[in-house]
Design a binder for these strands. Sequence first.
DNA 1: TACACGCGTACGTGATAACGTACGCAACCA
DNA 2: TGGTTGCGTACGTTATCACGTACGCGTGTA
Lengths: 201, 201
Amino acid sequence: MVAASTTPPARGEGVADAVGPRLRALREAMDLSLRDLAERSGVSAPMLSQVERGETSPTISVASRIAAGLDLSLSQLLRLDEGRHVVITPADQRRTRRRRGHVVEELSPPLPGQRADVSIHTLAAGAATGAHDDPPVHEPGSRETAVVLEGGVELFIDGERNKLGEGDSVTFDADLPHHFENNGKADARLLAVVAAGLRRG
Amino acid sequence: MVAASTTPPARGEGVADAVGPRLRALREAMDLSLRDLAERSGVSAPMLSQVERGETSPTISVASRIAAGLDLSLSQLLRLDEGRHVVITPADQRRTRRRRGHVVEELSPPLPGQRADVSIHTLAAGAATGAHDDPPVHEPGSRETAVVLEGGVELFIDGERNKLGEGDSVTFDADLPHHFENNGKADARLLAVVAAGLRRG
DNA sequence: TACACGCGTACGTGATAACGTACGCAACCA
DNA sequence: TGGTTGCGTACGTTATCACGTACGCGTGTA
């Protein structure tokens, strides 16, 4: 990672700290008193006050009740304006995983403090002859796009076999069980994009 | 479109309950032990175990530390989704655009049924020597990830010049003014992912 | 003035989140 | 086979979350 502009890391804690002001803003925007929201959410008014002032960090359970009281989803409640980012990853500084004849490189780590409810992983994968990739089933709602840069591979999705030649691409829901096999004579190179959080409206 | 089906929606309080299995899936997907993640997140391994098994509801504070340990934002960690699709695009059936020394191919057409306000485009771009790409500034909240497959290019983001060599990748907010230039001697090939509709706060 | 009525917050109490330690269980080597 | 290493989890203690109650404050009404 070479450059990251304009916003501090905002690693972990910062999110929790900023929930308070945001909650207060949301509540006041809906013209609700603490007791109003307490009624709607099932969370006591003093507790709401403490959360708003950043005196305590609510549990996920309480936070989602608060969100429900505001007619928001939990991630909507926790979403913060997280600014702009530029992250450059040189080829030799990539995070690399090795797995049974495969070399998998993470091209685009999630941006720190990323603002959206969508995350995108871009991966380069080298598949040696005979390699059998057995990746984890990605989180529900994930979508994966893969491009065959060199060689050919077979992609098994939910038991179904799909042949992919050089240059072919495929897009599929990555929460299905799937894996790549390279049964050809030459090594293959893939590029994959995993996009998570594509919730259906 | 090869397959399509759906799973029941998960709304309201259920979010908190389902964090456990989701956390476990994410941790195992990253091939981390409880102690590994404890180290990365600053949350104790037994606590992680309890959260994964749904025995306790973590505070927002702890949850965001966990998210940070997984290189995720908090809202990413807490998301639950549904749906499944598979689309295969052979190399010779791609939609292609030409623009001033560039060949741009759309690798992944938007999937039907996908959330209306989010679109993800995966593009392969060939940049001839001297090419100067001048793409539109994407809509606010867009994010772009580009990978240099061959050659080298220069990426100008908001007036700032970034040199990218073969294999380098970059992720940036695409609502900033930006363009690619290929001032090298050889042609270059890029792969870009543009995620639009990542609405801010 | 006096007396409601609404607001947000300090206080004291149980409940429980979160910690450090330690256990039982496999896999791997000497 | 005994020692080591790593895994996930049960245990007991401490920190703190979350509750109900009660207080001080400002505003409007009599």
